[in-house]
């Protein structure tokens, strides 16, 4: 649309090619109500849009008008819908349309309609769209790595069209950029469990556990990998509780004595799932007690809850609840 930028500044009503169209003003209802403060340009563009929409004129000038209306307000479902009808009627080049969307998306990457339109285009283009769609979402994610729409679209592309080959590596890149990026951890799980190339969670668990442990040791306060680590075992609490790598990780983090809420809560979960902690665990937790309380006589689970009540006061009621629900067999 760049070549038309000059033209766009001329009001639609003064363009000769629109002389035959009678604009249709917004009907604000049967009674006088206070109108919204539309800008003149917006009002006029929409008046002409309504005219071609009502007459269902699927023409190049209608397409051009929807471009202008979308630039003025990309959130209008009707304009996008009509644009698709026009694109189909004109048998337009959909690759060109991808460029149009990319332009609009740069400034409106959280707009639902844009993504829906993009999906429609990709569906039409089929597997030929994979590379471009993965690149497009990558560009949006390079500006905002947690953009929910971009992730949804990317997941849809992978599931519907394919392109899994480099996805795990892409997740790794994003986590290298920001290991706190929960969206990237979520995508990693999506790939590990869903990619037809990797053999599924069972085949991937071992290497993923090692990968995640490394990430946790670098930033033990990072919520996402702790949850990811637990998720790798799904409902299999027994395997999880008996995997020595998990308890060792807790011990290792606890020995640093700082930022260890998730290490403590994971150890608590392990104990609740049947893990039998050795004396070194008790010693590490006792070390975290307030300096005025000596080594605790109570069970390790209870001590962990007491420490969490103190160091995580926002959630004191949660930890108190955990304390009151410890299994009776707990040491």
């Amino acid at each position: 649309m760049d070549s038309n930028e000059e033209e766009q500044k001329i009001p639609v009503s003064q363009r000769p090619e629109w002389a035959d169209v009678k604009p249709v003003p917004q009907d604000d209802g049967p009674r006088p109500v206070v109108p919204i403060a539309y800008t003149e340009e917006f009002r006029e563009t929409m008046d002409y849009f309504r005219a071609v929409y009502v007459s269902d004129e699927r023409s190049p000038r209608s397409l051009q008008l929807t471009s202008e209306a979308i630039h003025l307000n990309p959130g209008n479902y009707t304009v996008w819908h009509f644009r698709r009808a026009v694109l189909e009627a004109l048998n337009a080049d959909l690759h060109e349309e991808l460029d149009f969307v990319e332009n609009v998306a740069k400034e409106n990457s959280k707009n639902y309609q844009i993504w829906h339109h993009r999906r429609w285009l990709a569906e039409k283009l089929g597997t030929g769209a994979i590379v471009k769609e993965l690149e497009f979402t990558k560009n949006i994610l390079s500006l905002d790595a947690k953009n929910y729409h971009a992730w949804s679209h990317r997941q849809w592309v992978l599931k519907a069209l394919g392109g899994w080959e480099d996805e795990l590596e892409y997740c790794h890149q994003l986590l290298t950029d920001d290991v706190f990026n929960n969206s990237a951890w979520n995508q990693r799980y999506f790939v590990v469990t869903g990619s037809p190339l990797l053999g599924g969670l069972d085949a991937m668990r071992d290497s993923e556990v090692d990968y995640t442990i490394e990430a946790i040791i670098a930033h033990p306060e990072n919520e996402s990998p702790w949850r990811y680590l637990r998720g790798l075992y799904k409902q299999d609490m027994k395997t999880w509780a008996n995997d020595p790598r998990i308890s060792s990780l807790c011990l290792k983090v606890l020995s640093t004595k700082t930022r260890c809420i998730f290490a403590l809560s994971t150890l608590l979960d392990l104990i609740c799932s049947g893990f039998q902690p050795g004396p070194e665990f008790k010693a590490a937790v006792d070390d975290l007690q307030a300096s005025d309380t000596g080594p605790s006589d109570s069970g390790l689970g209870e001590t962990i809850c007491s420490v969490l009540e103190r160091i995580d006061p926002l959630r004191v009621n949660y930890w108190t609840w955990r304390k009151s629900h410890l299994p009776s067999v707990t040491v």
């Binding site: 992730w151 997941q155 979520n186």
Partner: peptide, 15 residues
């Protein structure tokens, strides 16, 4: 999802 939350579609991040 694995964190007990829900996403917009299967596999979508909890929000």
């Amino acid at each position: 999802n694995l964190d007990g939350g829900f996403g917009a579609t299967p596999g979508g991040e909890s929000h």
